[in-house]
Design a protein around this nucleic acid. Structure first.
Length: 325
DNA sequence: CAACCGTGGTA
DNA sequence: TTACCAAGGTT
């Protein structure tokens, strides 16, 4: 069932071949990296048992759809803001079929102010794909998951791991940061995910599928609660004694500057304002209403065109607009 | 592959 | 107050 490469140190010859020509690595180096990571397993798994947050999508009876919905909502959005929207969403659409039966605009409306509303559109499209191609059941195969709209490397691995107990490297920003510090000795991970991040996570995984699945959620939780980006709570960290960054004296971040994302006055903000008008209106809206939502004409038109092109807004006759049906 | 895509909380 | 950050994906 698990389709991730196995790293069986007892059989160096059987090292998984990597089609994309990674740097050649000796069996000894692989064994060494795996062994170092293995010492982190017990402390992190025990810490998770004692400190995991109670979240609705982690309940034993939550199901794969619950996991999938939560993963979409949690893409770039904090847990506390997801919780209320998630509850309403699951109450209204407890299955992929239920969501698939509604127009995409209803998904966009229910998405509320979670941000990145294209995620709502993609989740709706994924629900229809699941209904059409998978009998209404969230697929358990990694490749099938990856083929769904809005499901990338991380989300496919997360659903396969959290919902189906499979062995996959689940590499999000939390995990990248935990490993960058504990194994790499760096204050922060690289700006964007790298192949090295994935390789490191694969080597660090426990071999047993069930343990690997728990390891995946545990390392994420550690990054979310203890090994945080700004002021990590190293005093409460279960692996502080083995953390390469701590052992190095916690040197400051010295990499390239992180891209500061401004928001005020951007097209993104303009799109958000326009879409908010449509979300808050039961039916179609006249152009004049949208004109009032953003002062700059050129930017407003560009934003509206973009929303229409993305399928988030549907143009009607006589300069009227609505959420897509 | 760099740029784009929302929103709100916090140090 | 400004800047950074939050369970990424797509083009």
């Amino acid at each position: 069932m698990p389709d991730s490469p196995r790293s069986d140190a007892s059989q160096p010859q059987a090292r998984p071949q990597r089609p994309k020509a990674a740097k050649p690595r000796t069996a000894a180096a692989v064994t060494s990296a795996t062994a170092a990571a293995a010492e982190l397993h017990e402390p992190i798994l025990s810490w998770y048992d004692a400190n995991a947050r109670v979240l609705p999508w982690r309940e034993p009876d939550a199901g794969a759809w619950a996991v999938m919905v939560s993963e979409f909502m949690l893409q770039q959005t904090p847990v506390v803001r997801v919780l209320p929207v998630y509850a309403i969403w699951m109450d209204r659409w407890p299955t992929p079929k239920a969501l698939a039966a509604e127009p995409p605009g209803e998904a966009v409306r229910a998405w509320g102010r979670l941000g990145y509303p294209r995620r709502a559109l993609r989740l709706h499209a994924a629900a229809r794909a699941i209904t059409d191609n998978h009998g209404g059941e969230v697929p358990n195969d990694h490749a099938d998951l990856l083929a769904l709209p809005g499901v990338g490397t991380y989300t496919a691995a997360a659903i396969a791991s959290f919902a189906f107990g499979q062995r996959h490297a689940v590499v999000d920003t939390n995990v990248r940061r935990v490993f960058a510090r504990a194994l790499g000795g760096d204050a922060q991970p690289s700006i964007s995910p790298t192949a090295a991040d994935l390789r490191r996570a694969e080597q660090a995984m426990p071999l047993d599928a069930a343990t690997a699945a728990k390891w995946a959620v545990a390392t994420m939780e550690l990054g979310a609660l203890i090994c945080t980006a700004r002021t990590p709570k190293c005093g409460h960290c279960p692996i502080v004694e083995r953390c390469a960054w701590t052992l190095a004296g916690r040197p400051a971040y010295d990499g390239p500057p992180r891209k500061g994302q401004t928001y005020d006055g951007t097209d993104r903000q303009a799109r958000g304002r326009l879409l908010a008008v449509l979300r808050d209106s039961a039916g179609p809206v006249g152009k004049a209403r949208l004109d009032r939502a953003w002062p700059d004409v050129a930017q407003r038109e560009r934003a509206l065109d973009g929303l229409v092109a993305d399928g988030l807004v549907e143009p009607l006759a006589r300069s009227r607009f609505r959420l897509p049906i």
